[in-house]
Design a protein around this nucleic acid. Structure first.
Lengths: 153, 153
DNA sequence: ATCAAAATATTTAGGCTTGAAATATATTCA
DNA sequence: TGAATATATTTCAAGCCTAAATATTTTGAT
């Protein structure tokens, strides 16, 4: 008497979403707490520093916000705080007075280098339930999902 | 000359975390926008209503916050807004004047019923890249992860 | 060369989120 | 009984986040 499934796999996909949300919340909560207690910092600041660490010559504000998939206004605030922490600096872009290049200061590079490995260790520990094979399986499947999602937009 | 891998699978697990974050951000952004444009509402409010819909007799504030894995103070604010929207009500708990039971109003039940199927459709669409088999694979693997994470705490 | 359109970043208002402190009520047990 | 402790919720300050509005600068079509 129940309605037929309109699209095979619909239920399975909804279960995936619930699981993704759960894993994400647990991990974010754990990482946030460790960042706060051990580094006196936050995940968003770490994410910005990680993006800048990959681009030693620096990035524009707009490049940062699209790399991290957050709004421009958001990046403005986080970079403000990182600047007042002394780990990031804003530089003028020659030839374009609208824009800024943001990059890690020397202190910021050292701080990030010291923290990155520790951060990776936390994640490795939180995902101990995952064998290498499991991990590769998930990565491969999720890669397809992201591809499809980017098409949809 | 590079350092040996201290823990096999470490790199694979880090890649999984990056992917999980990416999928989550894309989906949350998409769902947030649809909630706003089509329902004039938000994801946190929807999540609270979904939790309440599963418990017709209502839930305590503290049960809500642990079900959703967020802080008590957070739930207070969201429930305040849902109450002023007229979709949720706070009831006294006989025998314990510290606590409240929160539950959907009649209007809230109707509103949620109308929206839940549409919301599920959005998720199904966003996860179209996932076959039923893929979805079941991911769910099974992530279940192990969450189990391990709950042990760790 | 001009000027409308597009691009870059910031500001603003409002909502979400946390952790800590405050408030109110219940329970325990000496 | 009554003081200490525990539990339930709210309040608060600070940070994160978005969408929309604003200011400035650049681009491109004419």
């Amino acid at each position: 008497m129940s309605a037929p499934e309109p699209n095979p796999g619909t239920r399975a996909r909804l279960r995936v979403w619930i699981k993704l949300l759960t894993v994400n919340r647990i991990m974010q909560a754990e990482l946030r707490e460790k960042m706060r207690l051990e580094f006196g910092s936050t995940l968003p600041r770490f994410d910005v520093m990680a993006a800048l660490d990959r681009e030693p010559q620096g990035m524009r504000m707009s490049a940062l916000s699209s790399a991290l998939m957050v709004s421009n206004g958001n990046i403005t605030g986080i970079v403000d705080r990182l600047v007042s922490d002394g780990v990031v600096e804003r530089l003028a872009v020659p030839g374009d007075r609208r824009a800024f290049i943001v990059r890690l200061t020397e202190a910021g590079q050292h701080e990030f280098a010291a923290r990155a490995a520790i951060h990776a260790g936390w994640i490795d520990e939180l995902l101990q339930g995952l064998s290498e094979e499991d991990a590769d399986t998930i990565t491969a499947i999720l890669r397809k999902v992201v591809g499809k999602q980017r098409e949809q937009q």
